[in-house]
Design a binder for these strands. Structure first.
Length: 883
RNA sequence: GGGGUUGUAGCUCAGAUGGUUAGAGUGCCUCGUUGACAUCGAGGAGGUCACAGAUUCGACUUCUGUCAGCCCCACCA
């Protein structure tokens, strides 16, 4: 008996297999290796992060593509690495410090950064280790980090060049500020959510006592910083009042009533209080109308000094106080409920405060134009295509990108300020002396760059930029980028812009977009809901192959998918099925050596048929992988292996395997082994571990499955019968007969495995001879014995009809005639209905004249078959009725 | 306010360039313990493909509209 375990236990082999792959350097390639270059750069996970389902999906899709291309013979590089993830990582270390009763300011910048690096060393390997357990075939020898030397050099070089070209500038502008993270943010790091708020109507009296203007605001606390009230120039209500002076309530500041076409006449009262320091639109209006900026809210979200009793209050406390005071002073007219969008920090969800500050920006328009063009021209393609529109729309409406962050963890901005002469120096290398005044009192800009700035360079910084490396020449542009739709703006668009700017070419030819992995209720997996499923746990329980297969099946590009444990189980069951089919073969091989040479064998119908199925599967799987339809490819493999190979083919080899004809036995073994080995190769990208471990046990395979060729048409050609279609058609007829017999047996409660006498009545003589020759297939699959070919129509029998064949299951006693008539009548109705629709088409002149000839012919054939079936059924029913 | 997307069996989802008896997994029902596999095998029930029009000889598949859900973008206080 075989020593192979009866069930699939991935825990027994996945780790060792991965270690062997890595040891044998199967993941590694070089620029001068042969083959077409195929390269994917990994979307770098956060160094301090842990593997989650989103990663698992992303990595699985990439690994499938990578493994497929490597087998195809391409020079395949999967470039791995991690991202320093500025805010996220810094926040974690700050949290740790909080636990120790200290903070980063007490520690100081240098010490703090040491701590972050320590943290990175400690947890930076966790994520890459977890990637390994998934089977990711990354070239780990090339692993990179967004803050390693090379990436940092790339960042400095790009920054300096953009600055010198005027595409990076420093400016005092209103930007999104997170009071909790204490840093500026870019527009896309702000998440807008509609909230139920209020609209406070407030009276601002004229200085001359001639009444008042009523303004409406959602943020009354900002009134402390008002420096004007705006109305639309064409607004008749205010036309004569423009230019007059108002007294700002509570503050008693004199502010002008002015006209600006930004104002919407139809909203609220048509008069807007203007706070240039705390609202983006007001900021613009302030600039246009020369209004002073009065800052009343500090970076921490607390009211500024010099505001009397309001100073030091939290912004929302202050709001309450202001409203109360306005009401007490008789300035508050009314309060309305008002739904509006409020910005929140993507990281900590704190409400964003627009603040005026000095920040660094990237000028986007000139960078965006070629990035739009690259997609419009088809140089870069999105899969699925619909994401191109989203991408283009965003780039066409792009605004300048605020890239400075008031953090410590990240790429420090390469700018120095001379305290002696006030000049600013932007430089790739550290500056110790001012080139203008030769002063030595230089201060480096304290800010760091947005994490996405370095991510934007990832496709070329990892390949060696700023050095002109062989890798860069060979692998850039990379082949495809695989990522979720949630970071198209953050990352994809920026890589395209930077790639075009600094390499003159798109960074990748395809962007393969996938969706989110949700929980069983369709909710996003999140920490706060605690509904996340840990991929590591899934791998430990069911194996990486099961997880991978589950993530890939039944999913299409760009669509979200739900995680179900039952789906993982189903994938595991598939793995177990393969395991046992292989075990069956290996057990038989123990007693019979595998024939080395197919020339000595004699292939029979079943053999030719399974090879035809394999070839079809090979062609379709390949096609679907090329089209990124990985779910469909996986489905085809599942279908071939389980239904065709296991359910039918293996069963059909048993009589030969257990029989005494040595040549027949050898043939069956050969085909079993050959088809399995090729199927394993086709499945390898999806289930790398299982396919490797099984293939290593096969006598007809050598080396690692990872580096053996992808199955080709040429390789299969010698096994494909000339009359492929005819064989397939005949095989289908046999399978239909088998199904009918099984059905009849089940209908009368005979055990499906109990041998039962069957009578076949075949219309066509050639067909009859052919069926007689292969009658063993029917008896083996349907447990039918004996099978008699006859012209008689036994009356005491159950019957079924398929095209060209009547099938009888004779019974010893009397059959329940009425029940049988009812069953056959039901069948008859079904066939008649089909025939009616077919003849309807054929009676339609326009169908005959307009439909293509082959479609018409197919309908004709269909009708003939249906009519035959109808007449058989009618005769049978008639016969039974006359018993 | 724009834009996208989804609506197919109880549940989760597949179904290029229009012509299938509309599929799978899972769940459900009936039957089955001789060895590849009960992580299995055999059979079965279950869908007017959201709704209404249009195009067409023919629409689950194309177009338009309606309804319902989800998502993204947006500086109306």
């Amino acid at each position: 008996m075989s020593n192979i375990p009866k069930t699939y236990e991935p825990q027994n082999f996945e780790k060792e297999i991965y270690a062997a792959w890595e040891r044998d350097k199967h993941f590694h390639t070089t620029a001068d290796a042969k083959g077409e270059p195929y390269c994917i750069v990994i979307p770098p996970p956060n160094v301090t992060g842990q593997l989650h389902m989103g990663h698992a999906l992303d990595e699985t899709l990439q690994d499938i593509l990578i493994r497929y291309h490597r087998m195809k013979g391409d020079n395949t590089l999967w470039m791995p690495g991690t991202d320093h993830a500025g805010i996220a990582t810094q926040a974690k270390v700050e949290e740790q410090l909080r636990g120790e009763g200290t903070n980063r300011y007490e520690l100081g910048r240098e010490k703090f950064l040491e701590r972050v690096w320590q943290w990175k060393e400690k947890y930076g390997n966790r994520i890459t280790y977890q990637l390994r357990t998934l089977g990711s075939s990354c070239d780990w020898e090339r692993e990179r980090f967004t803050m390693d030397e090379g990436c940092s050099a790339a960042v400095r070089k790009v920054f300096v060049q953009l600055y010198n070209e005027g595409l990076i500038y420093r400016g005092t502008r209103i930007t999104n500020w997170c009071p909790k993270c204490n840093t500026a943010l870019s527009d896309i790091e702000v998440e807008h959510e509609t909230e139920q708020g209020h609209l406070w109507h407030i009276r601002y009296p004229f200085k001359d006592g001639s009444g008042y203007v009523e303004v409406a605001t959602t943020r009354p606390e900002t009134m402390l910083g008002d420096t004007g009230v705006a109305v639309h120039p064409d607004d008749e209500r205010y036309k004569n009042l423009v230019g007059k002076t108002l007294i700002l309530p509570l503050v008693n500041r004199e502010i002008p009533l002015f006209a600006d076409s930004y104002v919407d006449k139809n909203f609220g009262t048509g008069a807007v209080k203007v706070t240039p320091a705390h609202d983006p639109n007001d900021f613009e209006m302030g600039l246009r109308n020369n209004l002073p900026q009065v800052k009343v809210i500090e970076n921490t979200g607390v009211m500024s000094d010099g505001l009397g009793k309001y100073s030091g209050l939290d912004r929302y406390e202050c709001r309450k106080q202001i409203v109360a005071d306005l009401e007490a002073g008789g300035y508050l007219v009314k309060v309305e409920n008002h739904e509006h969008a409020v910005g929140h920090c993507q990281r900590c969800h704190t409400t964003i405060e627009p603040l005026v500050s000095k920040q660094w920006f990237v000028k986007m328009e000139t960078l965006a134009a070629p990035a739009i063009e690259a997609v419009k021209s088809g140089e870069l393609k999105f899969v699925p295509e619909r994401f191109t529109k989203i991408y283009i729309n965003w780039l066409e409406n792009i605004r300048d990108w605020c890239i400075s962050r008031q953090l410590w963890w990240g790429h420090q901005i390469p700018a120095w300020y001379c305290d002696d002469c006030g000049e600013m120096i932007v430089s790739e290398t550290d500056v110790h002396e001012c080139p203008h005044c030769h002063g030595k009192n230089l201060r480096r800009d304290e800010d760091v760059l947005d994490t996405w700035f370095s991510s934007g360079l990832w496709p070329f910084s990892t390949l060696g930029y700023p050095n002109d490396t062989a890798e860069l020449k060979k692998f850039y542009p990379t082949s495809v980028l695989v990522t979720g739709y949630d970071i198209i703006f953050f990352w994809v668009a920026r890589m395209v812009m930077m790639g075009l700017k600094f390499q003159g070419k798109v960074p990748f030819k395809y962007v393969f977009i996938h969706g989110l992995v949700r929980d069983e209720l369709g909710r996003k997996m999140s920490k706060s809901l605690n509904n996340g499923v840990d991929p590591v746990e899934v791998i430990e329980k069911y194996g990486a192959d099961s997880l991978r297969f589950m993530l890939v099946t039944g999913n299409t590009p760009g669509n979200d998918l739900r995680f179900y444990w039952s789906k993982v189980e189903s994938a595991r069951n598939f793995a177990n099925k393969i395991w046992n089919a292989s075990r069956f073969l290996l057990m038989n091989l123990e007693e019979n050596p595998l024939p080395p040479n197919p020339d000595t064998l004699s292939f029979e119908l079943a053999d030719k048929w399974i090879f035809s199925c394999l070839e079809k599967t090979r062609a379709n799987v390949t096609k679907n992988i090329e089209r990124f339809e990985l779910g469909e490819a996986a489905r085809l493999l599942y279908e071939f292996i389980w239904f065709y190979y296991c359910d039918y083919y293996i069963e059909l080899t048993k009589s030969r395997l257990y029989g005494s004809d040595a040549r027949a036995k050898a043939t069956a073994l050969f085909v079993l082994a050959t088809v399995l080995e090729k199927a394993l190769r086709l499945l390898h990208p999806f289930m790398p571990f299982l396919t490797e471990v099984i293939r290593q046990k096969l006598p007809n395979a050598e080396g690692s499955i990872m580096v053996v060729n992808w199955v080709t048409e040429d390789e299969l050609r010698e096994f494909i019968p000339d009359d492929k279609d005819g064989i397939e058609k005949f095989a289908n007829q046999i399978l239909e007969i088998v199904k009918t017999i099984r059905n009849l047996k089940s209908e009368i409660g005979i055990d499906s495995r109990k041998k039962t006498k069957i009578i076949l009545r075949v219309a066509n003589t050639d067909n009859k001879i052919n069926l007689q020759e292969h009658v063993s297939y029917i008896s083996e699959l349907a447990f039918a014995e004996p099978i008699i070919f006859a012209d008689e129509k036994p009356s005491h029998a159950m019957s079924g009809v398929i095209e060209g064949v009547e099938i009888y299951l004779p019974l010893e006693g009397l059959i329940d005639t009425e029940k049988e008539i009812a069953r056959l009548t039901k069948e008859l109705e079904k066939v008649r209905k089909g025939a009616a629709s077919t003849s309807g088409k054929l009676n339609n002149e326009r169908f005959l004249s307009k439909a293509p000839a082959d479609v018409v012919q197919a309908e004709r054939d269909k009708l003939v078959a249906a009519n035959e079936k109808i007449s058989s059924l009618e005769q049978r029913i008639n016969q039974l009725e006359n018993l």
